Simulated scan of single mutants.
Amino acid sequence: MAKTKVFMSFDYDHDEDLKTLLIGQSKNDDSPFSLADWSIKEHIDENWKAHARRRILAVDVVCVICGKHTDTATGVSAEVKIAQEEGVSYFMLAGRSEGGNVMPRAARNTDKLYKWTWANLKSLIGGSR
């Protein structure tokens, strides 16, 4: 069975360590997903948005890793907005086990912040197909 392609959105300035953790999990033998691309650290303009849109349209689901400053990460909000506009499934993952995780400003009131466990991750990604 083909693995689910995941776009990873995260706050480059504060949560790059969380990106590394998710990359590690994607390499597990029983991982149901592969990371196609992740957030782009460039000035946010129309070219950036077009590039992000192409990447997001090429995946099955967007995983938004939420840390303590995600609400101020304009790139993460832009990526979530693109996923919403294009109808691409996405979910919010609580990145810091000690708490204090916040969702991006573009999150909808109905969006839920899920605890980062291997079981949750496999379920959220598996349910996106």
Score class of each variant (00 low, 15 high):
residue 26 S to R: 06
residue 80 V to G: 11
residue 39 S to C: 12
residue 65 I to V: 09
residue 22 L to Y: 02
residue 61 V to G: 09
residue 124 L to Y: 11
residue 127 G to R: 00
residue 104 P to F: 15
residue 73 A to D: 08
residue 111 D to K: 15
residue 96 R to C: 13
residue 109 N to K: 15
residue 3 K to A: 02
residue 30 D to K: 03
residue 76 V to C: 07
residue 40 I to A: 03
residue 114 Y to M: 10
residue 22 L to F: 09
residue 65 I to D: 06
residue 14 H to V: 08
residue 23 I to S: 08
residue 14 H to N: 12
residue 112 K to C: 14
residue 108 R to W: 00
residue 38 W to R: 14
residue 120 N to H: 12
residue 85 E to V: 09
residue 117 T to G: 10
residue 94 A to M: 09
residue 111 D to Y: 15
residue 72 T to R: 05
residue 26 S to C: 08
residue 5 K to T: 00
residue 52 A to I: 07
residue 76 V to K: 15
residue 105 R to H: 13
residue 29 D to F: 09
residue 122 K to R: 11
residue 92 M to R: 00
residue 14 H to P: 03
residue 2 A to N: 08
residue 128 S to L: 00
residue 57 L to C: 10
residue 104 P to M: 11
residue 118 W to N: 06
residue 3 K to E: 01
residue 65 I to F: 00
residue 127 G to N: 11
residue 114 Y to D: 11
residue 116 W to F: 15
residue 101 N to Q: 05
residue 51 H to K: 15
residue 49 K to C: 04
residue 65 I to Q: 02
residue 52 A to Q: 11
residue 83 A to P: 03
residue 55 R to A: 04
residue 89 S to K: 02
residue 35 L to C: 13
residue 101 N to T: 03
residue 21 L to Q: 07
residue 82 I to Y: 00
residue 5 K to L: 01
residue 8 M to C: 14
residue 118 W to V: 04
residue 81 K to I: 03
residue 13 D to H: 04
residue 1 M to E: 09
residue 23 I to L: 14
residue 16 E to W: 00
residue 29 D to W: 07
residue 7 F to I: 12
residue 48 W to N: 05
residue 63 C to I: 08
residue 42 E to K: 15
residue 53 R to T: 06
residue 4 T to A: 05
residue 22 L to P: 03
residue 37 D to L: 14
residue 126 G to A: 12
residue 25 Q to A: 05
residue 127 G to F: 11
residue 63 C to L: 04
residue 34 S to R: 02
residue 64 V to L: 11
residue 14 H to R: 09
residue 9 S to N: 07
residue 6 V to M: 02
residue 12 Y to I: 01
residue 83 A to T: 05
residue 33 F to Q: 13
residue 67 G to H: 01
residue 85 E to F: 02
residue 35 L to E: 14
residue 106 A to M: 08
residue 1 M to G: 13
residue 46 E to S: 11
residue 14 H to M: 06
residue 126 G to R: 08
residue 98 E to H: 12
residue 75 G to T: 01
residue 23 I to Y: 14
residue 54 R to T: 00
residue 74 T to I: 03
residue 29 D to M: 12
residue 116 W to V: 13
residue 83 A to L: 05
residue 97 S to K: 08
residue 118 W to E: 06
residue 129 R to F: 13
residue 71 D to I: 05
residue 61 V to L: 04
residue 58 A to D: 10
residue 45 D to K: 15
